Simulated scan of single mutants.
Amino acid sequence: MKPVVSAFNAWTCIVISVFAIVILSVIGSMFASGNHAMMGSTEDPKDGKGVAAAVFGAVVVYGVFLLFCGSQAFLHQRQRAGGEIALR
C-alpha cells in the first residue's frame, strides 16, 4: 500500500493532533466539572456538560486524524526501509 500524504505532512499532522487532543481534553474536562475559570462569568455558557460533549467530539475527530496520520507515517517508514513487497 502506498502513502496518500507526504512524510512531512504525516508527521506534522501527528504533532498537531497530539497537541490538540491534550489541550482540548483539558478544556473539556474543565467545562465538564464546572470549573470557575470556564463557567464563572455571566457571559460564559450555562450548559457546561453540553459544551464539554462538543469539545470531546472534537477530541474524537483529532483521534481519527492521529490514527490516519500515524498509519501514513508508518507506511513511509516501511517504504524507506525497503520492507514493502512489490508485485511487478
Rank of each mutant, 00 (worst) to 15 (best):
V4G: 01
V4E: 15
V4W: 03
V5L: 07
S6I: 01
A7L: 09
A7R: 15
A7F: 08
A7Y: 11
F8S: 10
F8A: 13
N9S: 07
N9P: 01
A10E: 11
W11D: 12
W11Y: 15
T12Y: 04
T12M: 06
C13L: 03
I14K: 08
V15S: 13
S17D: 01
V18P: 02
F19R: 03
F19H: 07
A20M: 13
I21R: 04
V22Q: 02
V22K: 04
I23S: 13
I23Y: 13
L24C: 10
S25F: 08
V26A: 13
G28A: 14
G28W: 03
M30V: 00
F31I: 01
A32R: 01
S33T: 12
S33M: 11
G34Y: 09
N35Q: 12
N35I: 05
A37V: 13
M39F: 11
M39Y: 06
E43R: 13
K46T: 10
K49Q: 10
G50S: 02
G50P: 00
G50V: 00
V51E: 05
A52W: 02
A53R: 03
A54S: 03
F56H: 07
F56Y: 12
G57S: 13
G57C: 10
G57V: 05
G57I: 10
A58C: 06
A58N: 06
A58Y: 08
A58E: 06
A58Q: 06
V60D: 01
V60C: 08
V60E: 06
V60A: 14
V60H: 07
V60G: 06
V61W: 06
V61I: 12
G63T: 03
G63P: 05
G63M: 05
V64Q: 01
F65I: 06
F65M: 08
L66I: 09
L66H: 08
L66P: 07
L67W: 12
F68L: 14
C69L: 07
S71H: 12
Q72K: 05
Q72N: 09
A73R: 04
A73I: 14
A73C: 14
F74P: 00
L75R: 13
L75V: 08
H76P: 11
H76N: 13
R78E: 02
Q79R: 06
Q79I: 08
Q79A: 10
R80A: 13
R80G: 00
R80W: 02
A81C: 08
G82T: 09
G82W: 04
G83E: 13
I85D: 10
I85Q: 12
A86K: 14
L87G: 10
L87V: 14
R88C: 00
R88L: 05
